[in-house]
């Protein structure tokens, strides 16, 4: 990915993120968050994580943001107007954020790992077809030999090969979440 595109998408991600934090109207904030997630998805694509990028758009910019907008419009939340700002919270929030950013810049700038570039660590697709061991299913090795990155297949293999139990736990979590939402949003009967 050309450096210019990286800076463009980083700017979209951070700029709309800033709009989420500073916006007064909740609908504006929700739409800015969706735009910020689209920029983030583009950054995922630039890191050769196509599956994660697509999931980011589908789940976050799609499902989660629709849920947010739905709740904002259901509750009919108005723009916060005339309320005095909580100055101490704002000062402490900005101060913490600036300190954390400076710390991360210091740490990220000083290591060998952080100075690796995308061009400096190219993917070896054709070579890896013979080396990937247990993941050497015909469909994966054929894709690798053809020079494409079958990353959805590789993530799927990793999930079901090494993290099968964790996947079931996540399934249970979603089930519990579904039941919890139904229980929470059921209107309570008037207390006796």
């Amino acid at each position: 990915m050309p450096p210019l595109l990286f800076y463009l998408f980083a700017l979209i991600t951070l700029g709309f993120g800033f709009l989420v934090v500073t916006g007064r109207n909740p609908v504006t904030c929700a739409l800015a968050l969706a735009a910020s997630f689209v920029g983030l998805a583009a950054l995922f694509l630039s890191l050769d994580a196509y599956f994660i990028g697509v999931i980011q758009i589908l789940v976050y910019a799609g499902a989660v943001m629709v849920l947010f907008l739905f709740i904002i419009m259901l509750l009919d939340i108005k723009t916060e107007e005339g309320k005095k700002l909580n100055l101490s919270a704002i000062v402490s929030g900005v101060l913490l954020a600036v300190l954390l950013t400076l710390q991360i810049i210091m740490v990220a700038g000083g290591t060998d790992l952080a100075s690796k570039s995308v061009q400096g660590t190219p993917l070896a697709l054709a070579d890896s077809a013979t080396k990937i061991g247990r993941a050497a299913l015909p469909t994966i090795t054929n894709d690798l030999k053809a020079g494409t990155l079958p990353d959805a297949k590789l993530i799927g293999f990793t999930l079901f090969d090494q993290y099968g139990f964790h996947l079931q736990v996540i399934g249970l979590l979603l089930l519990v979440g579904t039941i919890g939402v139904v229980v929470l949003s059921k209107r309570e009967r008037s207390a006796p």
Partner: peptide
């Protein structure tokens, strides 16, 4: 040249923005 450091700094700035929002917004 875009390095891992660039991505980490963007990630850290996004996290800091979120943190500031969690603390400051009501």
């Amino acid at each position: 040249m875009i390095t891992l450091g660039h991505y980490l700094v963007v990630s850290g700035m996004l996290f800091s923005l979120g943190l500031a929002g969690v603390i400051a917004r009501r």
